[in-house]
C-alpha cells in the first residue's frame, strides 16, 4: 500500500482513500436518500462529526443532521444510528465526536429489535 493511503474493506472491495478523506457508507433509508452506498468527503484534517454531517448535507441537498437530532436537539435514537470506526455514536453526545482522515463512518437506521 502506498504511504498516505488507507485501505477500507467494504463489500469485497478495497477503497483507497486519498490523504484527508473520509468514507461515509449508507445503510437502509440513507441509501435511498443519497442514492448511493457510499461517498467520500474531503475533510482536510480533523473535524467534528457534526461538521461532517453538515458537509454531507451540502453535498446531498438535504438536512442530514435532522435524521439524528430532533428540532430541539433531542437525540433520535429510535430512528437513526451513526457508526464511527465500528463503534456506535452516542447521539446524546453527538457534538463531542471528532472525525479524522481515514476514519470510517456509517449512517444507518437504528437497530430494529424484539417483536
Amino acid at each position: 500500500m502506498l504511504s498516505g493511503e488507507k485501505s477500507l474493506l467494504t463489500h469485497h472491495r478495497v477503497v483507497l482513500l486519498e490523504l484527508g478523506e473520509v468514507q461515509v457508507e449508507f445503510i437502509g433509508r440513507f441509501r435511498e436518500l443519497f442514492k448511493s452506498k457510499n461517498t467520500i468527503i474531503e475533510v482536510g484534517s480533523e473535524i467534528s462529526l457534526l461538521s461532517l454531517l453538515k458537509k454531507l448535507s451540502e453535498k446531498a441537498g438535504f438536512d442530514v443532521v435532522s435524521h439524528f437530532l430532533g428540532s430541539s436537539g433531542e437525540p433520535m435514537e429510535e430512528y437513526s444510528l451513526i457508526i464511527l470506526n465500528g463503534k456506535a455514536v452516542n447521539l446524546r453526545r453527538l457534538s463531542e465526536y471528532v472525525v479524522k482522515p481515514g476514519d470510517r463512518v456509517v449512517l444507518s437506521p437504528s437497530v430494529a429489535g424484539g417483536g
Binding site: E25, E78, I83, S108, V111, G113
Partner: peptide
C-alpha cells in the same frame, strides 16, 4: 420516526447494521 425501520425494511434491516457493529 420511531417505527419507520419496521415499516420499510422490517427487522431484516438489522443485518447490515449488525454487520457494521461486528
Amino acid at each position: 420516526p420511531a417505527t419507520e425501520k419496521y415499516r420499510i425494511y422490517g427487522t431484516p434491516a438489522n443485518i447490515l447494521v449488525h454487520n457494521k457493529l461486528g
